[in-house]
Nucleic acid binder design. Structure first.
Lengths: 218, 218
DNA sequence: GCTTTTTGATACAATTTAGATACATTTTCC
DNA sequence: GGAAAATGTATCTAAATTGTATCAAAAAGC
């Protein structure tokens, strides 16, 4: 899981960010001052730091110098908006710069961009003309939205993540249903059937006799 | 209406931007070279210029010098991604910097941020025939005013701001009610119900089984 | 080709979740 | 303080999802 450290002394903003990033599937830690930030950075590795510049005692610029050697990308969050501040932040090595007040969608966009730049994430899976968005649990084929149920969605994600790999029935069952598999039920087959129908992947989702299923490229 | 000039020589990118900005309610003009840009800027006033740096003949940096005296904000769009380029652009006075390939949502977010910074935005959201005025908290459908309660208004704003994105029940609850969500209450459902009735968006506000709700276009 | 085993298809039952309704509680505004 | 509006709760109904039973079709082994 992707870990993000939020260094922000205003609890309201810190919470807003944390809640939204958590919803988006990131693991968040929050601190409200530079010293705590330095301490937690000593002991933990983060994929990204969101850093307020105006902090009591140790400010963001100092902290950035401390983070730099760890190669962790940093996005500045700040009320300061002058050109000098922005250039200073970028020159010092911040990956991006967000000015308060900001929209949550913008924050998420920038977080995603930076993480992608660092190859930390891809919240979108694709298979041929099918696109699966893991963040908001939507699936599209071409430009129509597929109406998948939660179980079907999970099943499709598992297949796409293991494209061209045969998945054992037991493994599928135990992953999606989180319970042991006793081979006397048609439940999995039925879900495969429904998924084939909805996605149109009748041919691509191959059944492997006695073993399980495999999603195949053509 | 807010006018945006797109200076970009790759037609595909230019069209992509134009289509999405138009959809977002902006008026767009496109040119594919620096000279045309200079000419159209002579005769018209724009609220924002999206400027590709790599242009034939007159490049983006030169053009930026030309635009600067008009005080029109500029967002650079470029394939160049080095720190120096970014700092150069910002030092020269660009408001922001987008590196290709970019996500359309990110572009929109940055456009909005820059416009807001320049107070160009009329804080109005629209969805189909519904117009939401954030300043005086009024909502109209066609030319009739909708009588929404505060909660309903916030809910609608959240849905419209996240159109075509599935919002998790928990996230909605935590955003609008600012408290944690315990899944044993029908409160959110009830507000959705009332909103559907008042706005007539019965079909557009889709419930996503076990997940949450999504406002859909079409 | 025939039998056995496994998967696919169909119908339908059980379960879970969302919608509808009525009404209680809280807040707002005179 | 009290009426009106807004919000929340309880409860029931409807709908969507998930699972089971059954049988037909397909695959594998002989």
């Amino acid at each position: 899981m992707i870990k993000i450290l939020i260094v922000e002394d205003e609890a309201a903003i810190s919470n807003l960010i944390r809640i939204n990033l958590t919803k988006a599937g990131y693991e968040c830690s929050c601190v409200d001052n530079g010293l705590d930030a330095a301490n937690i950075l000593e002991k933990n590795v983060f994929d990204l730091v969101l850093l307020d510049i105006m902090l009591p005692e140790v400010d963001g610029y100092e902290l950035l110098e401390y983070i730099k050697p760890t190669n962790t990308p940093v996005i500045f969050i700040t009320a300061k908006a002058t050109l000098d501040d922005r250039v200073k932040g970028l020159t010092m090595g911040a990956e991006d710069y967000i000015v308060k007040p900001f929209e949550i969608v913008e924050l998420l966009a920038r977080v995603n961009v930076v993480l992608r730049r660092y190859n930390k994430t891809s919240s979108v899976l694709t298979f041929e003309d099918i696109t699966i968005n893991l963040d908001n649990k939507t699936t599209t084929k071409g430009d129509t939205t597929l109406d998948l149920t939660p179980k079907e969605f999970e099943l499709l994600v598992m297949l796409v993540r293991n494209v061209n790999i045969t998945l054992f029935r037991e493994r599928i069952y135990e992953t999606i249903w989180e319970s042991e598999y006793y081979g006397d039920t048609r439940t999995l087959d039925l879900h495969i059937q429904r998924l084939r129908k909805k996605t149109g992947l009748t041919k691509n989702i191959k059944s492997v006799y006695k073993i399980g299923y495999r999603l195949e490229t053509e």
